[in-house]
Design a protein around this nucleic acid. Sequence first.
DNA 1: TTCATCCTTCGATGCTAATCGAAGCATTCC
DNA 2: GGAATGCTTCGATTAGCATCGAAGGATGAA
Lengths: 226, 226
Amino acid sequence: MKEGPDIARVAALLGDPARANMLTALMGGRALTASELATEAGVTAQTASSHLAKLQDGQIVLARKQGRHRYFTLSDPDIVEVLEALMGIAQRTGHNRLRTGPKDPALRRARVCYDHLAGEMGVVLFDSLLARKYVIVAPEGTGLSNAGVAFVRDLGIDLESLRQSRRPLCRECLDWSARRSHLAGALGAALLDHFYAQGWARREKGSRVVLFSPAGEKRFNDICQI
Amino acid sequence: MKEGPDIARVAALLGDPARANMLTALMGGRALTASELATEAGVTAQTASSHLAKLQDGQIVLARKQGRHRYFTLSDPDIVEVLEALMGIAQRTGHNRLRTGPKDPALRRARVCYDHLAGEMGVVLFDSLLARKYVIVAPEGTGLSNAGVAFVRDLGIDLESLRQSRRPLCRECLDWSARRSHLAGALGAALLDHFYAQGWARREKGSRVVLFSPAGEKRFNDICQI
DNA sequence: TTCATCCTTCGATGCTAATCGAAGCATTCC
DNA sequence: GGAATGCTTCGATTAGCATCGAAGGATGAA
């Protein structure tokens, strides 16, 4: 009644179906325009505009104007985490809007969580990095060991430029489908980019699914090998 | 639009002020009756009953009938985590319902997060356990090292009975005030109980604040000493 | 049994907010 | 310049839901 931050205002922002659809779409990581989000949410442009104003006011999304378009992104990694956590609860309590189809297993297998890899393959990757002590979880924050630095360099990823961003290099993100953590942060994003660049995987159009080619999956398993 | 669990239903449940007040009260960890929750939320018993039915239906809370009372608790550690995470966002975006008073600093210092210690002191405790490698964060779950087992035994805590519960022994929980993790799980709860039992600390009545006595804080610092 | 307490159900009310049509800016394209 | 596109503002409508009064079970106390 009297102490603590006000959950209700934030939760109410996420609690409208149209807004939730928009946010789920933004979990795909690409910046989307107001009209794309309107389509995703299944509402008209006017309605979407009103919703987006509220989300922006509540600092859930960021807007960037470019030409006559306005591109929206999620404002903060914490938002991404809360959304994934909410998905976990929704899932467990049987509130899913899945039309059970081929998408469902594929989503669990490998999907984009904003800009990094989630799903079973994301968890496998994270676990293998932890098991080899390439990634260390410490009180002052998760980070790379010396061996981890070498591993990332060997993959051909430019660590220096990653370190220059204000974004934390490594970050845990709880996975709603696997109920385990996967790797987020600048490195998480860079690894997924690497998979794309090497042609191991690509995004399925219009969804969060990440499709690995047979050869790509083999290479992926190789680098996860302990 | 078509894939992934339905965030909106869950978030909407948390997004009503009355329900959010109830849930915040339940973060105190004690089971509360329907009428207590009505008072916390500032609504009549009828209204509270309707809200509680929804929360129960959505599997956010559990009800246990005892005599003519119905006691409610949060249903799941994941719910606790989501609530704390939402508090973090609400806080950062300046949506707090704090009447800035002495409570605020005290809440940041030490408070109950369901049934374990949170706030600065909770974070200090967790960090010190990690630094001494008493608690190990591993892919297959957070756990106690042999040294950690000895440490806990020395405190006079019965580990065997803790292990017998289905609840995980160690668990990380993100702290909204410190933006760092503190220790949850059966051990987290047992440690806080220990602090109470030793007379080092007590609950402030009607709030989540944990008050350490000067002597108790000294003892607490001793056991956190590396 | 009778009364009191705790909680729920029912029904009515009222408010909030989502929605969309229509119109108005802003920007880009031709 | 004019037309087209992307987005926002305004206003009116509507639906959903929180709220509470009144009444009805259930449990425990006397």
